[in-house]
Design a protein around this nucleic acid. Structure first.
Lengths: 208, 208
DNA sequence: CCCGTTACTTACTGCTGGTAACTTTTCGCA
DNA sequence: TGCGAAAAGTTACCAGCAGTAAGTAACGGG
């Protein structure tokens, strides 16, 4: 009676091979569910809750996306994709202006704000393995940034290692500023973006 | 027989009020033990292991330092103290030079390398509460940096909010660069420090 | 001499990540 | 047509961890 599938009638929650031999609940479905749960319950969400939201049981989650570290990694990829998408227009031009940089940072902040809990889930790695997993989000965001940097500044082309270090540094700066910014509401995104842009563009001593 | 205290003979591991009514195992003792455990077993160390290493039981740990979040916070304070101490000489002068900035960053990197596991433990917040707890390390490192920044650049004095944003940004940059740097050993601290210093000093476009 | 306080331990709960083993359905093939 | 193999999922479990309640031994003041 009340033990029938409650979540979604379209997916089969009972064992056995489905018609056509195709997976009813695929990886994307589980990741969507994970996002909903995290958005609703916060960054401390469990895999169990994700499974329930997806309308399946835990082993399915492990089969589709792997363990907790893999889930965080997959969600990091989603978030970084949104980051890249949101900031793409700001980095579009051939040459970079301070205005463009500011808009890049502001878009970054807004994307974090729009995905607050997801951001905290992804950046808040749990174990020692996942602590390094934060680099995963960084690396993904870093790749396009590295290319852009190489275009901007000729000196980077002479020493390619610089671009990588800079990209990680900038991503780290943006992550920390984002984390600090979303915990307080008395500053606008424009204001903070302008301040960070000023630092990254003109350097600590400023233009003389 | 073999159930006697095995760890340290000087501390009393049996219940009852000790002589003189003074605590035998104080907060610092527990924090020292926590550091040893984390250094030995990595960032995934449990409170149970900390208690064993300290020669006491778990409730003692909770009484002395609180829960896991409090432990991470206390260790973050220790680490940031070491950071400040190691970088103090680099920031000593009245005016800042790029060389001084480079040495500041390099000292930062070396301190992280010397406290690798501790750094990963502190920055790798576990739950959603502790995710914001990474700000704790940042804020502690930020405070002296903010003061220094205010001295360096007059424009900051006009808008005090800038210093805070910059300090968080710089700390985030250093944390991410550290995390990236300690996972690969084909770059020297000097090299990376010089590259990040160049970015922070001259800005993205560089000095023309 | 004894009782309250202090300091500590034992023993537990609740939850989470992860996995082994079992069940049900479908499909391929004789 | 019937039957075994494979696929898809569930149930039921384990180990480990954070955190806590309740019990116990030693000291000190009246």
């Amino acid at each position: 009676m009340e033990q029938t599938a409650r979540m979604s009638e379209s997916i089969s929650r009972r064992p056995g091979r489905p018609l056509g031999g195709q997976l009813v609940v695929d990886r994307e479905h589980v990741l969507d569910a994970a996002e909903r749960v995290i958005r609703r319950d916060g960054a401390g969400s469990s895999l169990e809750a994700v499974a329930v939201e997806a309308g399946v049981t835990k082993p399915i989650v492990y089969d589709r996306v792997g363990g907790r570290a893999d889930l965080a990694d997959a969600l990091a990829e989603r978030l970084s994709d949104r980051m890249v998408l949101a900031t793409r227009t700001a980095l579009a031009g051939e040459t970079l202006s301070q205005m463009g940089l500011t808009r890049f940072i502001e878009a970054n902040l807004r994307t974090v704000a729009d995905n607050r809990e997801l951001f905290l889930y992804v950046t808040g790695g749990s174990t020692e393995q996942t602590a390094l997993g934060r680099l995963s989000l960084a690396e993904r965001s870093t790749t396009p940034l590295t290319k852009t940097l190489a275009v901007w500044r000729s000196s980077i082309q002479q020493d390619p290692g610089v671009a990588e270090a800079w990209a990680f540094g900038i991503v780290g700066m943006l992550q920390m500023v984002s984390q600090w910014w979303i915990t307080q509401d008395d500053r606008s995104a424009e204001e903070v973006a302008g301040q960070i842009s000023e630092l990254l563009w003109n350097g600590l001593p400023g233009r003389t």
